[in-house]
């Protein structure tokens, strides 16, 4: 029992260290380099931000499936604000954030006021956000000086993606990509909110037992709404970083992050044996999959087969949790 507890608590970290040892043994001088480790961290930065959104929704007892589409929408809006509307970087950041808030509000309205189950409500909003995004860009990518096709012919878009904006995803601070720093800061702030503030207590209470929370004098609907807003905002930040990282807006580019984000959140449950959604765990979960995927790619394991490993890891983490709950 003691061993299982230990594995449960530190399993993910042991697994990460194990992977680091194995891959650096198999790939000497390639895997364990500063550049590659930074590469791993950048590759999980957007996943972690989006996963942070999922985690917030899970904390308040919801489940936000719209995060991937929100990231897509945010990245298109960010690029579009600069390319179509010739706005400065701060507008290109603000507008997607507002979009994230609005989607969060819609999610909570559907699930709280209309009592649609969370999974279905956010699934619906996933399609809505995806649709808005595609309508906005007419299905095209958005990039500097792109050609815009209209019924009246073709003309060049007036704006470009600004240097300031590109710094978010491409800049470095003393050798470390800025996006990693940004992600870590956001995860730390999120963790402080969840763990050290009144709001965090109320959120965990709401998610832990909504009925008890309500009878303890908590405005459950309000707290859940805040949770969904956090979720939307974090997903939107993920989308903004994505747009900057790519230097363009790619339709549906954020969608792919949903499943990885969900996996990271659930793997994170086991972190330190809490058994509840938590941001450090989510980060660790994302790092774990990131290390695994990077190592497998380096080992020339085909991309298609990598999904099998990802699936096994998620199933393994969930099984560990089920085993512990016994």
């Amino acid at each position: 029992m003691k061993t299982t507890n230990f594995i449960y608590k530190y399993g993910v970290i042991i697994a990460i260290i194990g992977l680091l040892v194995i891959f650096s043994g198999l790939l000497p001088g390639q895997f364990l380099t500063f550049d590659n480790l930074m590469n791993i961290m950048t590759s999980i930065t957007i996943t972690t931000l989006v996963a942070g959104g999922v985690t917030f929704s899970l904390v308040v007892g919801g489940f936000d499936l719209s995060v991937g589409s929100v990231a897509s929408l945010a990245s298109m809006l960010a690029a579009g604000m600069m390319v179509f509307s010739v706005q400065p970087a701060w507008v290109a950041i603000l507008v997607p954030l507002i979009a994230g808030i609005l989607i969060g509000l819609s999610n909570s309205f559907l699930s709280i006021k209309l009592r649609i189950p969370d999974l279905l409500a956010t699934l619906g909003m996933m399609y809505v956000a995806r649709g808005i995004q595609l309508v906005y860009c007419r299905g095209n990518q958005i990039f500097s000086k792109m050609n815009i096709i209209t019924p009246h012919g073709i003309h060049q878009a007036p704006g470009t993606i600004t240097k300031n904006f590109l710094f978010i995803g491409q800049g470095k601070i003393s050798g470390i990509p800025f996006m990693i720093i940004l992600m870590l800061v956001i995860i730390i702030i999120g963790h402080i909110i969840l763990n050290n503030t009144k709001l965090g207590r109320l959120m965990y209470a709401t998610g832990g037992n909504p009925e008890a929370a309500r009878l303890s004098g908590i405005d459950v609907a309000g707290i859940k709404t805040i949770g969904y807003i956090f979720s939307g905002v974090l997903a939107a930040i993920g989308g903004i970083v994505l747009a900057s990282y790519l230097g363009s807006g790619q339709p549906n580019a954020g969608d792919a992050y949903l499943m990885d984000a969900v996996a990271a959140s659930f793997i994170g449950f086991t972190f330190l044996g809490t058994g509840i959604p938590n941001l450090p765990g989510t980060l660790i979960g994302a790092i774990f999959t990131g290390v695994l995927m990077n190592g497998l790619t380096m080992m020339n394991v085909p991309y298609t087969a990598q999904d099998i490993f990802k699936g096994l890891v998620l199933v393994g983490a969930l099984a560990l949790r089920a085993f512990k709950n016994k």
Binding site: D35, S43, N294
Partner: peptide, 12 residues
């Protein structure tokens, strides 16, 4: 985004 990461991996 994955292509960028892949290119970095190739360099690594």
């Amino acid at each position: 985004a994955k292509m960028i990461s892949d290119l970095k991996t190739a360099i690594a």
